[in-house]
Design a protein around this nucleic acid. Structure first.
Lengths: 207, 207
DNA sequence: GTCTATAGTCGGATAGAC
DNA sequence: GTCTATCCGACTATAGAC
């Protein structure tokens, strides 16, 4: 990737993060990148395409960063703790916020939708096998839709990030309560063979 | 409220829902309301203030609509079912989507933040007492932060709504999996006195 | 209260010099 | 590949007629 292209991609991401989708104009992006405004159109054709590229690039690098940590997770509480940790890291970095802005923009600009869906699915793809793994021994696993849960968690994350922007304390409280929910499930899993068999039976009867 | 004011409030909401925060200009809103563009500024001073008013008004009326249903909820699965139902109703109506757009806009326009936080807290205020009530007899209640959970659910809802805009099937799957999670908690609550006491003890030791 | 008209700014996008 | 210059549409906001 040439220097100018890279600067534009970086500038687009920073603008999306700092000024939101409503403020991510070609001029604002070019200013953040320190290049001429016309180059946005020369290199990417349109602002939407540049934003698409920026979002994909940023997520690729962040997902790669966390891959090892996802792989090291061995229990649900650990996974939720990693989630809290990622939330805090990405809040500072602004990655999830940028994704949220893309999601908001995609509701009315169809050109942004495919890239946004792909970006979100990159996080889901990380989450799903881990969730599958930590629930492997649990009696509740066959009752749950792991793939759906992974999607729900990813979407909830985005919502929490947006919430954080208008009520920081409230969002922190919400995040902490979710982390506690993980411990709860772990405890249930650890009730002993009798309760475990009872639980399994009850769940089976409900399917 | 005079006719013009009411039309503008209605038009602002519709524009926010249909064109997103990036497309909610004074001109677009006035066109949707069928009134002159200058009247936005005469009646509300600025677009931000009109959006603030529109969001508050829409949420007030929708929350009132669901109040009876919230009051009738007697169990966690019922609450989650109501959540799914509200999600589907509001998806059609566009209320949660409008809130999501306000949240996205508030990240970069501080003038929108207070109204957005208030709007979200109106949903949380509905949710919290119900959550408190359906968990009243559960051994897990004293381990959970009900207020935080209510906030997490509200934020997750917003995230799911945004997700829905770029991947309808994925969002539906996510929503269904969350509803199943409720049944799971109910089943755990219903394991019998022995397992219940055991669970209570384990949770106490973790506090 | 409502309208027209308009000032002034910012936006996407392109043409053409270098 | 990069720049300047520019077209033209859309925007916020206001002034002033009615």
């Amino acid at each position: 990737m040439t220097d100018t292209r890279a600067r534009l991609v970086e500038g687009a991401f920073a603008t999306l993060r700092d000024k939101g989708i409503a403020g991510a104009s070609a001029r604002a992006i070019a200013a953040a990148a320190g290049v001429n405004q016309a180059l946005v159109f020369y290199h990417f054709g349109s602002v939407s395409e540049l934003l698409t590229e920026a979002c994909a690039h940023a997520t690729r690098s962040r997902v790669a960063l966390y891959q090892a940590q996802f792989a090291a997770v061995g229990s649900l509480p650990e996974l939720l703790d990693l989630g809290v940790q990622i939330h805090k890291g990405e809040r500072a970095e602004g990655n999830v916020l940028a994704l949220a802005q893309m999601l908001a923009g995609a509701q009315s600009d169809p050109k942004l939708a495919p890239a946004t869906a792909t970006t979100l699915s990159m996080w889901v793809a990380q989450l799903e096998p881990v969730l599958d793994r930590v629930l492997a021994d649990s009696p509740i696993r066959e009752f749950l839709d792991v793939s759906g849960l992974a999607r729900a968690f990813a979407a909830a994350f985005v919502g929490l990030e947006l919430y954080d922007g208008v009520d920081h304390d409230g969002a922190d409280q919400a995040l902490a309560s979710v982390a506690r929910l993980g411990v709860l499930i772990e405890v249930v899993d650890d009730l002993g063979p009798a309760a475990r068999a009872l639980l399994r039976g009850k769940l089976r009867s409900l399917r």
